[in-house]
Design a protein around this nucleic acid. Sequence first.
DNA 1: CCAGATCGTTGGTTTGCACAAATAATCCGT
DNA 2: ACGGATTATTTGTGCAAACCAACGATCTGG
Lengths: 154, 154
Amino acid sequence: MTVEETRSRRAMDRIGLLLARHGGISNARMRDALEATGLSTRQGITLMHLAENGPIGQQALVEALGVDPSALVAILNDLERDNLVERRRDPADRRRHIVVLTDAGGSVLTRVDAAMDAVERELFVHLDADEVATLHRLLSRINTAVNDDACREV
Amino acid sequence: MTVEETRSRRAMDRIGLLLARHGGISNARMRDALEATGLSTRQGITLMHLAENGPIGQQALVEALGVDPSALVAILNDLERDNLVERRRDPADRRRHIVVLTDAGGSVLTRVDAAMDAVERELFVHLDADEVATLHRLLSRINTAVNDDACREV
DNA sequence: CCAGATCGTTGGTTTGCACAAATAATCCGT
DNA sequence: ACGGATTATTTGTGCAAACCAACGATCTGG
């Protein structure tokens, strides 16, 4: 546990770098933990989102998950191949595919949740419940909005 | 929505996912902000570390930055090509390359710092100074140690 | 009915990063 | 002085992710 002390303290005083590093670590841990379920992190998130927000079109999923449409296609292909998810044509608009979580998908989702619980328990083992809650609150208030300057590029 | 179905937590209530996402955002913003300096994030961190911990061998840099030796070679090649850094053979051990920050590197570093300041200001615009300090404190207490299971593989 | 927009899909490109293997130069212990 | 270890380096491989262009099927407004 003292090995990290040799890392540059000053560089890690940069809270932006600290955030980036720990985000990467969290990401890697999630990936490893989900390996047992055979899912990628994004596939797990997709299942979570389907369970929360019910059957939904792919366009809406793209919007909700913030991934590229072509990426979502690959995600759903794998999920559907394993019968965790089903694509149904929307009778009202036959271009649309309504994505629904299957029963098998639901039960895999519980394993996903358990895996993520374990990761979080390990990541925040040095924080008590209040501190985790505080961390959560502060993280969710980080500005994720895209800079206006980036948009005015007409 | 309705509170009835709590089998799966909402995706962004997952603090681990929140951390991963915001870490990625922070990383991307840093990269964009450093584009003006012509440096990658890792190159910027390398300059920071050299300024803090003085001339240092590459082996020690590898240890401190937590990057692969081959990755560091590429980083230093680019930095040295732009005269921001200098590799000097250690007279005491001619296998070693002592990496020193040049004057040009030092002045570029101030631009790196300014860019990172700007990114952090924008990221945490909705947090006051105390909250940023709290966030920093909690982040630095996240468990980054490698899992024991991974170590007993010897 | 037609032109244009939308939806999902395919394919390809690029980038950043982690990891492994092999090599030349150099050091160190005996 | 020799063998084995260490240092920096080169090279290759794989993976996850962002991005872009184009296409067929389908819907919608006029």
